[in-house]
């Protein structure tokens, strides 16, 4: 009996100690990834979380909250109290276009953003597909508008923007087949359900090298060499004029926090982020996945996003994917 009382009191004392510390961060931070585990955003977030956590001295837990093209998790963080313990990791294509998709009235300007990596889109087709070059594909889209099927991770995903870029270059529409994520879209391609998949190179780099899928083009400015003898041509090679507006196209992943945290805590995050993006484990990880590390601090990120978000929202608006005019949110045309 006495043992119980003692144990209970001890336990309560121990737990009250956990509440004690005064400087931030004093408990674990939750990093929301608004997609399923294993995708590009998720993996980048985990790598960053690990490196940043080491610097800040706490564990940063990654919580997957998939749904609605990344907006479910993002809105969760937006609505949470701004105490620095709830952060978001998201792709900027999906995130910056939330206002024109009608998910929220707030724009990226109301968040503190730290941009980390860039992953280009890559158009792939099944290995026994009749298309061998990007011209084959685009010519077929022109010939049969609305029939050629593209599998993406949904409206607002990196892949969707890749597809819209192809549509803009071809001048004709494709049939959009949304999946629950990059992984399912890839399995859909392998099962022969869709004609092409314009998701991110990082998601199927190994499959390209192994020859299980054919890569027609990458939406980066230059060719990319994945392995000795395996080169994916840049789309600029075949369509220099039409593609110029869009390239480089791909998903830019960042860590975000709604504005409102005090400056001293923000400086701690700045420092942790800086350390993380120079961390060898992180850099190795990005190199293996063909992510380009482009770390940007808060001010730089805002500047970058003015141009990037502008490009993204107008792709959606001009392509008819959204009907809310970007000008309403002060997005400027690139």
């Amino acid at each position: 009996m006495k043992k119980f009382v003692a144990a209970g009191l001890l336990a309560m004392a121990a737990s009250s100690l956990a509440f004690g510390a005064d400087d931030w961060p004093s408990k674990n931070i939750n990093l929301t990834v608004p997609y399923g585990a294993g995708g590009t955003t998720d993996l980048t977030a985990r790598a960053l979380a690990n490196a940043m956590g080491k610097d800040l001295g706490v564990t940063i837990n990654v919580i997957n909250t998939p749904g609605a093209g990344g907006s479910a998790g993002s809105l969760n963080v937006q609505n949470a109290p701004v105490d620095g313990y709830t952060m978001l990791a998201n792709g900027m294509l999906a995130f910056a276009t939330m206002p024109v998709n009608g998910y929220t009235e707030k724009t990226f300007r109301e968040w503190d953003v730290w941009i980390a990596t860039y992953a280009p889109n890559c158009i792939i087709v099944p290995k026994d597909s009749p298309y061998n070059t990007i011209q084959d594909l685009i010519n077929d889209i022109k010939k049969r508008p609305g029939q050629v099927t593209a599998g993406t991770a949904g409206i607002g995903s990196g892949g969707f923007f890749g597809a819209e870029t192809v549509k803009a270059i071809a001048g004709a529409n494709y049939k959009h087949i949304p999946y629950a994520g990059g992984g399912p879209a890839l399995t859909g391609l392998l099962a022969g359900e869709v004609d092409f998949v314009p998701q991110l190179l990082a998601e199927y780099k190994d499959l390209i090298i192994a020859g299980k899928v054919k890569a027609l083009a990458v939406l980066a400015a230059e060719d990319i060499t994945l392995a000795p003898g395996v080169v994916v041509p840049s789309i600029m090679k075949s369509y220099p004029n039409e593609a110029k507006k869009f390239v480089p196209m791909g998903e830019v992943t960042a860590i975000l926090l709604p504005k409102g945290l005090s400056e001293d805590k923000l400086k701690k995050i700045d420092k942790a982020f800086d350390v993380a993006t120079k961390d060898k484990a992180f850099l190795d990880f990005c190199a293996a996945r063909s992510f380009e590390v482009i770390p940007k601090g808060r001010a730089e990120s805002q500047q970058f996003l003015e141009g990037f978000a502008g490009k993204a929202v107008y792709i959606l608006y001009d392509g008819g994917a959204v009907s809310i005019d970007p000008a309403k949110f002060n997005f400027k045309r690139p």
């Binding site: 585990a37 294993g38 690990n50 399995t187 190795d284 990880f285």
Partner: peptide, 23 residues
């Protein structure tokens, strides 16, 4: 074989494999 998880816990496992440098 595909880097596609067969179930929800497996997805987290996959992420962990990547994190530790496996492909």
């Amino acid at each position: 074989s595909l880097a596609v998880p067969g179930s929800a816990p497996a997805a987290v496992l996959l992420a962990a494999f990547f994190m530790h440098g496996y492909r």
